[in-house]
């Protein structure tokens, strides 16, 4: 296995009313390719901050974040956006699909923005991804016409659009009922089984046994639970 994500004393401090608040203490973390990791902790513990640093959405105030060999710290916003689109797929809690685009178009847009997938293959690939996550028949519908579970699966398909090596999901099941949450978890497990590095932030204790590693975070301090043995991956619908 090769290292795909490396945090070296990465920390984040916000300055509020001339007061420094450290939301993530200096953290060292190494993630190997294909690992399936859960980040858990209560609200406000620093889960999202950790993920934001890994995705380059936020910049560390101390230390370094390296993804796929690229130090995100020294890149321009534009370059960072491009790399993020290419290397990291992001799934948000509230889906964040573009409401004016259909499911299919949302995925094609992600490919259009990055340009990593040849133009002629994009629609076909988008359709394949939608079918993989079980919402192929919803391809031409607007997000407003989809259920929460379906929207989240489209969002996962969008995150996979540019075939990223890392998939990051911040509370992806937080807004779903249990049935849909289970389906989404299964898709992530399948992605990990396919060799993709998947990091999921969750405060839901259910299903933690599926993950290779569980990183607990509390008051900005990370602690890691021992590696668990993953049972056979749940097939995606």
């Amino acid at each position: 296995m090769s290292t795909v994500i490396q945090l070296q004393s990465a920390s984040k401090t916000y300055s509020v009313d001339k007061r420094d608040i450290t939301v993530l203490q200096p953290t060292d973390l190494t993630v190997e390719r294909g690992e399936f990791i859960a980040v858990t902790g209560p609200s406000g513990s620093g889960k999202s901050t950790l993920l934001n640093l890994i995705t380059g959405i936020d910049h560390p105030t101390g230390g370094m974040v390296i993804v796929d060999g690229q130090n995100f710290g020294g890149l321009s916003e534009s370059k960072l956006a491009h790399l993020r689109g290419k290397l990291v797929g992001i799934v948000f809690q509230f889906f964040q699909l573009i409401p004016t685009l259909t499911s299919l178009e949302n995925i094609v847009l992600a490919m259009d923005l990055v340009g990593a997938i040849p133009g002629g293959q994009r629609r076909k690939r988008a359709m394949t991804l939608l079918e993989q996550v079980g919402v192929g028949e919803q391809a031409n519908k607007l997000p407003s016409r989809l259920s929460g579970g379906e929207q989240q699966r489209v969002a996962i398909a969008r995150a996979l659009a540019n075939d990223p090596s890392v998939l990051i999901a911040d509370e992806p099941t937080g807004n779903l009922d249990s049935v849909n949450a289970e389906k989404v978890r299964a898709i992530f497990a399948q992605c990990a089984a396919d060799g993709r590095t998947v990091i999921v932030a969750t405060h839901d204790p259910r299903g933690l046994e599926q993950f290779d590693r569980v990183i607990k975070i509390s008051d900005g301090v990370t602690t890691e639970t021992p590696r668990t043995v993953v049972s056979a991956p749940v097939a995606a619908q």
Binding site: A81, Q96, R158, N162
Partner: peptide, 16 residues
């Protein structure tokens, strides 16, 4: 604003 953030998050550069 949020949509712009999402676009940037999924790889949208300033020009896009």
């Amino acid at each position: 604003t949020r949509e712009i953030g999402v676009l940037k998050a999924i790889g949208g550069r300033g020009g896009a």
